[in-house]
């Protein structure tokens, strides 16, 4: 990670000094949106409204700058939260200013309404896409990957024969794979699970093998001089030194698993899944549902990533 910068706060930071500006900016943008909602038609001279939005955003940026000073918890979290909130509010106001139809870009408030209205179906879609396809595929791919890596390290011949292929296959684009796998396996969720498993498998194999081989010569020699059995060597030296590599692969794959499940669904489904929902609603100009599905997918994706990162911190403290 980054080198620790040597910055000692001399004076006590003023963490709250950004609040008035942030509040002013946020409430101002909110007010603009409400005012626009009261108009019967989008304003005839949008330039004035645009100016208002930009000015309020500028205020917000100053507020964010102010609140980012210092090392308090607030200084670390407020800027990011404020950025998201102000961004969403500004988008809302701008879309209303220009009267952009929902069929092209829906306003965030409309997306939230649709998300709530379609919650049961979206949850069902998320169940298919995340649990059955992404998570199951992730688990299968990772388990197979670990197993293959163990074999590859145990048998040099396999390592030399298999690993170059794994490195090659990990750069196969999933969109080229998906139509063929779906044709061969069928439209149901298992075809997507397989695609996810394949895309997870190769990075895990490559990283695990690299990790298992990363054990330092000195440690291995030491174990050797203790007359440790191969199992002991593995448990005490090889596996601990491989874990960080394994987790790197798992973290990267965790985000790819969900994205790949969604993309694979574009190539055919049995009428379930977030990718299916996105595809069908784009065709019907129901872009509010499309964005709602993307919001659901993002929340799940981020949570899954954080979960794996947390597991890594639990298992590998101090890294």
């Amino acid at each position: 990670m980054a080198t620790q910068r040597v910055t000692v706060p001399l004076a006590a930071p003023r963490p709250l000094s950004g609040w008035p500006l942030l509040l002013l900016s946020g409430l101002g943008l909110l007010g603009l949106s409400f005012a626009l909602a009261r108009l019967a038609a989008p304003p005839t001279s949008p330039a004035l409204w645009l100016l208002g939005v930009l000015l309020l955003l500028l205020l917000g940026i100053f507020g964010i700058r102010q609140s980012a000073q210092g090392e308090t918890l607030a200084a670390r979290t407020v800027p990011a939260a404020a950025t998201l909130i102000l961004f969403v509010l500004a988008v809302e106001a701008l879309l209303r200013t220009y009267g952009v139809p929902t069929g092209l870009i829906p306003t965030p408030s409309k997306v939230m309404q649709s998300l709530w209205a379609a919650r049961s179906v979206l949850l069902q879609d998320a169940y298919y896409t995340f649990i059955l396809e992404a998570l199951l595929g992730f688990v299968i791919g990772a388990a197979l990957g670990l197993l293959l890596a163990l074999f590859a390290v145990r048998f040099r011949f396999l390592e030399r024969g298999l690993l170059p292929y794994a490195a090659l296959l990990s750069s196969v684009p999933i969109v080229a794979l998906a139509p063929v796998v779906i044709k061969a396996v069928g439209l149901g969720w298992p075809s997507k699970t397989i695609i996810v498993a394949i895309t997870v498998l190769f990075p895990v194999v490559i990283n695990t093998v690299r990790g298992l081989q990363s054990a330092q010569r000195m440690h291995l020699d030491l174990m050797h001089s203790y007359a440790a059995s191969p199992t002991q060597v593995f448990r005490e030296v090889r596996w601990p030194s491989a874990l960080p590599f394994v987790f790197t692969a798992l973290r990267v794959s965790s985000t790819l698993a969900l994205i790949n499940a969604i993309v694979a669904e574009f190539f055919g489904t049995e009428g379930h899944g977030l990718g299916f929902r996105i595809q069908i609603e784009v065709g019907r100009f129901g872009l509010d549902i499309v964005w709602a599905a993307i919001v659901v997918a993002s929340v799940i994706g981020i949570s899954f990533y954080l979960l794996i990162a947390a597991a890594q911190r639990r298992l590998l403290p101090g890294r």
Binding site: I64, A68, A75, R76, P79, A80, A82, T83, L84, S254, T255, L258, I259, I262, V263, L274, G275, I278, V290, I294, A297, S298, G301, I302, F304, Y305
Partner: peptide, 19 residues
């Protein structure tokens, strides 16, 4: 960095391909 980095990291978990 404080304002945007968390969202940049988060954006990698978002199915941007869908967009």
């Amino acid at each position: 960095e404080r304002a945007t980095l968390p969202w940049l990291v988060a954006s990698q978990t978002v199915p941007i391909v869908a967009l």
